[in-house]
Amino acid sequence: MAAQLILPGGASRNVAVFLSEAAPGYTGGERLSDLLNASGPQFIPALDAETNVMTFVHCENLALARVDAEHEPNIIDQFTIPTEHEVEVTMVDGQKLRGLITYVLPDAHSRLTDYLNNAPAFFPVLEGERVALVNKRHVAYVETLRR
Rank of each mutant, 00 (worst) to 15 (best):
L62D: 03
P82C: 10
E88Y: 08
C59R: 14
E30F: 01
V87I: 14
A46H: 00
V131F: 03
N118T: 14
A23L: 07
V134K: 07
D68P: 12
A119D: 08
T144A: 07
T113D: 15
R111W: 09
H58G: 07
E86Y: 09
H109S: 15
V92P: 02
G28P: 02
A119L: 06
P24H: 06
A38T: 06
L145G: 05
M91N: 05
R137Y: 10
E129R: 09
R147T: 11
L32G: 00
V53Y: 05
K96A: 09
P45I: 03
L19H: 01
A49R: 04
P120V: 15
E143D: 14
R137D: 12
G10Y: 04
D114E: 06
V17W: 00
R111Q: 11
N37V: 03
S39I: 06
F56R: 12
A108T: 14
A132T: 05
L97A: 06
V53P: 03
R130G: 01
F79Y: 12
H85Q: 12
R147Y: 08
Y26P: 12
F18D: 00
L133H: 09
L32T: 01
H85V: 11
H71L: 15
H85W: 13
L64H: 13
F18W: 04
L145V: 03
A63I: 02
A69C: 13
L112G: 10
G28K: 02
M91Q: 08
E127S: 05
D77T: 13
L97W: 07
E30M: 04
R66N: 06
I44Q: 01
E143T: 15
N74E: 13
L145D: 09
I81L: 15
N61F: 07
N117Q: 12
V142W: 05
L126Y: 08
A22L: 09
V67D: 01
P124Q: 07
A65C: 04
Q95N: 10
L116C: 08
A22T: 09
A16W: 02
A11C: 05
R13A: 01
F123N: 10
L36Q: 00
T80Y: 13
L5F: 00
G94P: 07
R31P: 07
L19G: 01
L97M: 11
P73C: 02
F123D: 12
S39D: 09
T90E: 15
N117I: 10
